[in-house]
């Protein structure tokens, strides 16, 4: 083994380098969750509540990420609707009212 290793320039595919690269990405990602502003979980919950008014989605359908790039913060919103996302079984009172207003407005135009 040592004989072959001696001739192979293995610095490129050395596993320690892979380990460091993986950790760099992972730790940076985990720190944003930790150091992010405290309103992020609440914001996420509110967005989720709004979506749930219209579509039946799971509690993990929304992901909110705050990333810093140079001097600007990027708020990244990811909403996953699965293939079989059905409309929420019971539209909320709010949703019903807004739908009615919309239809009435449309009716006036025509």
């Amino acid at each position: 083994m040592g004989f072959f290793r001696f001739f192979r320039s293995n610095k490129e595919d050395a596993s320690a380098k892979v380990a460091k690269d993986r950790l760099q990405v992972l730790i940076a990602h985990e720190r944003t969750g930790r150091d992010g502003p405290d309103y992020l979980p609440m914001l996420k919950q509110d967005i989720l509540d709004v979506i749930k008014k219209y579509v039946a989605v799971g509690d993990d359908a929304v992901s909110v990420q705050l990333d810093s790039q140079d001097d600007c913060d990027v708020l990244e919103l990811n909403i996953t609707l699965s293939e079989d996302s059905t409309p929420a079984t019971q539209p909320s009172v709010d949703a019903k009212r807004r739908a009615m207003e919309r239809r009435q407005a449309a009716a006036k135009v025509t």
């Binding site: 596993s15 320690a16 380990a19 760099q24």
Partner: peptide
């Protein structure tokens, strides 16, 4: 093992 690139080095860990 660090020298052979098989183990994270002190510098790597301090950096992380």
């Amino acid at each position: 093992r660090v020298k052979d690139g098989q183990m994270l080095s002190v510098d790597d860990i301090v950096d992380l």
